[in-house]
Amino acid sequence: MIKKSIWIYHLNTGGCNGCDIEIIDVLTPFHDAERLGVKLVGSPRHADVILLTGPITRQSMEKAINAITAAPDPKFIVAIGSCACGGGIWYDSYATVGGIEAFYKILRERGVKPPKVIYVPGCPPRPEAILHALAYFKGLASKKIKKRVFVEK
């Protein structure tokens, strides 16, 4: 999707830190995402891709919306971890929005066009899973999962 170097901004919306630490891990010597041209930036205004972790808590939601709208177009979101992808174990809690789907519904209600999202499930995902998503972005790796339905005859 993006051929050039990807600049990423890390947006924690109330995650437990598990995914966040794995994101840092991706940038340390063993996994070294910088060899794929990935650079962590300090402001959403510089970012191509927002790495979103956490179930989007009520307290962090407004700030997350601000950060996402601040990123320049075209922008992408990579939802990392079970919390971001589907709300995780607290998907139905009163204090969380409950994952990216519910969050996008709120964005649409507010008239904000939600950016395209890539899902990276895992609790937390292995650093290689995050690298896989970034490589998929650059066309270096292919998707390995698809919906499977079994119907009893």
């Binding site: 109330g14 995650g15 437990c16 956490g54 179930p55 808590t57 009520r58 307290q59 962090s60 700030k63 174990i89 607290w90 139905d92 809690s93 009163y94 204090a95 969380t96």
Partner: peptide, 15 residues
């Protein structure tokens, strides 16, 4: 702080 307040205790009691 408490931007990470996820209602853990209530979810555990409730569900």
């Amino acid at each position: 702080g408490f931007g990470v307040f996820r209602g853990v205790e209530k979810v555990a009691e409730g569900r």
